[in-house]
Simulated scan of single mutants.
Amino acid sequence: MKSKKSIISSAINTLQLEAEAILGLIENVNDDFVNIINLIVKSKGRVIVTGIGKSAIIAQKIVATFNSTGTPAIFMHAADAVHGDLGMIQKDDIVICLSKSGNTPEIKVLTPLLKQSGNIMIGMVGQLDSELAMQADYVLNTAVEKEACPHNLAPTTSTTAQLAMGDALAVCLLHTRKFNEADFAKYHPGGSLGKRLYLKASDIALKNQKPQIHPSAYVKDVIVEISQNRLGAVVVVDGDVILGIITDGDIRRMLENHTNLANIRASDLMNANPKKVDKEVLAMEALEVIRKNNITQLLVTDSDKYFGIIHLHDLLQEGII
């Protein structure tokens, strides 16, 4: 069994090699890179990303990143391409082919077929004298000095370089397309990241009851209203006008300070300056108000009229926190 020192040393060496490989890519961000970005942005087609082995796995990740940031992309396995999957490539599509050596049998078979189709072919490759580099219209150089694998065999540093170059492409495309937070939310409606960008205070408040009581109501009625709606609070209103809020904490403090409850009304208990947000405010902004003021309930308004309540637990359930 390896010693603790040996394990840590191996891990640090791996990370250093891969970090150096990524930094080494900086000098490869050249005119070809710029031309590739402009071609993809102007293209009426999609980006087809292909590869074999570990490069195929990286290609799938690049496709996922492209699609989630506004660049339509499809993964095509290089081995399956020559068995029918070439049919997925349309006239205006741009093909990015990933390969460390650029000389694997599958790549050698695939590249002339791609050239015949007339599609622009981009080679993301580690050897500039390879078949892929020679056949490609544009080259993204992802050469590395050595793999992190001690035998210099298992794709480690090389696939990290491919992944980083793919991210560089995706982010540059994102900036060039002016892809913004609203666009991101459109492509990520189901995840917590997307919810942070599109979920509004109104969306959450509508799922809750709308507890309210008149300022003249007695303590018993206040307690009943709070208990029935399970939000830990009730809003004191007079028609459409918000007068204040009473929380379960206010009830506890009142019980500590008063023995005769007969004449205590809602107006005596309420906080006349409750924290409020408009219903159009994003849920993540509502969360910031809750955090800043160290509260658990927040009023939601519609043109200053009572719309509903958000509880801290609602934000937890939605994955906003």
Rank of each mutant, 00 (worst) to 15 (best):
A283H: 02
V63H: 10
M165I: 03
D314G: 07
A64L: 06
I96V: 11
N260C: 07
V237N: 05
M284G: 07
L312V: 08
S267E: 12
L299F: 00
V222T: 03
L193K: 04
I120K: 12
L114Y: 03
F184M: 00
E318T: 05
K276R: 14
L269T: 08
H258F: 15
L287H: 06
E18R: 06
H311L: 08
G123V: 02
I120Y: 02
L25V: 00
T156N: 08
R196H: 02
L269F: 12
F179W: 06
R253M: 10
K4I: 15
V224M: 11
C97I: 10
S99Y: 08
H258S: 10
V49Q: 07
K292E: 15
N273H: 11
A21Y: 08
M165T: 04
V49A: 15
M284L: 13
N257H: 12
A170T: 13
A217G: 05
Q127Y: 12
H311S: 11
T50R: 07
R265P: 04
K100C: 07
G190P: 00
A164D: 07
A217K: 07
S227Q: 12
H311N: 11
A201L: 09
E285M: 13
D93V: 01
N67A: 08
V281R: 09
D129S: 09
L261K: 07
Y198D: 01
N141F: 10
L110F: 13
Q16N: 15
E288R: 15
L114F: 09
E27L: 11
L269M: 13
D167Y: 01
Q228W: 01
K44F: 09
G102N: 00
T301H: 02
N119H: 04
I251E: 03
D250E: 13
G232C: 13
N119V: 05
R265D: 11
E280M: 12
R196M: 03
I223E: 02
G319H: 03
N13P: 01
S192D: 02
N229W: 00
F184D: 02
G51V: 03
H258V: 01
K210Q: 13
L193Y: 02
K279I: 13
H151E: 12
L98D: 04
M1C: 11
I40E: 04
I7E: 02
E288N: 14
K61M: 04
I26E: 13
V34R: 14
I89L: 14
D203F: 06
K220R: 09
N294D: 15
H175M: 12
D250F: 11
